[in-house]
Simulated scan of single mutants.
Amino acid sequence: MSLPGALSQFDTHLVQPIDEDVNHQWRVARRPDGNVRPGDFGMHIEPIPEPAEGEVLLRTHYLGLAPVMRMYMAGTARTGDATLNIGDVIHGRGVAQVVKSRHPDWREGEVVQGQMGWQTYKVSRMTSQEKFFRMPNNGLPAALGAGVLGMTGLSAHAGLFACGSPREGDRMVLSGAAGGVGSMVGQMAANVAGCDVVGMAGGAEKCAFIREHGCSAAIDYKADDAEAKLDELRPEGIDLYFDNVGGETLEACLERLRMNARVVLCGSISEYTSEEPFKLANYTRLRATESVMRGFFVYNHLDRWEEVMEDIAGWISDGRLKPVQDIEEGFVAMPRALANLYYGANVGVQCCSVRGEPEEWL
Rank of each mutant, 00 (worst) to 15 (best):
V349Y: 11
F41V: 00
P17Q: 09
E168F: 05
V89W: 00
E50I: 13
A77E: 14
R167P: 04
R107G: 03
H91W: 01
Y121E: 11
D318S: 02
Y221R: 01
D243T: 13
D19S: 03
A201V: 11
E275N: 10
G64Y: 02
R70D: 11
M188I: 00
I45Y: 06
H91R: 03
W106T: 01
P32S: 09
C195H: 02
Q97Y: 04
V98E: 05
G169P: 12
K279C: 15
Y272D: 02
H91F: 05
G153C: 08
L63F: 07
T12M: 09
V308R: 08
I327C: 14
G344I: 12
Y343A: 08
Q113W: 00
H91Q: 01
G199Q: 05
T284K: 12
G203P: 00
A223N: 07
R287D: 15
S274M: 14
D224H: 00
Y342D: 07
P323Y: 00
R78Q: 13
R70N: 06
G80Y: 07
W305D: 09
E359F: 09
E248F: 12
I48T: 11
F161A: 06
L286H: 13
G114D: 03
G176M: 05
N244C: 08
D326M: 11
H44E: 10
P17V: 04
R78I: 14
A177C: 00
R234T: 05
R30I: 13
V263S: 04
S268K: 03
G114F: 05
D11F: 08
E255Y: 02
D220G: 01
V347Y: 08
L3A: 14
F161L: 11
Q113H: 00
A6M: 12
R304V: 07
R70W: 03
L257Y: 04
L3V: 14
V123H: 08
V324A: 01
I90M: 04
A189V: 12
D81T: 10
R304W: 08
E108Y: 02
G247F: 11
L57C: 11
H61G: 11
E227R: 07
L84E: 10
D231T: 02
G54F: 12
P166F: 05
Y72K: 13
V123P: 09
R102T: 13
D224K: 04
V68A: 03
R78M: 14
T79I: 15
N191E: 02
Y342M: 03
N244G: 10
E271C: 06
V192C: 01
G75W: 05
F132T: 02
D196V: 05
V22T: 01
S270M: 09
T83D: 10
G169H: 05
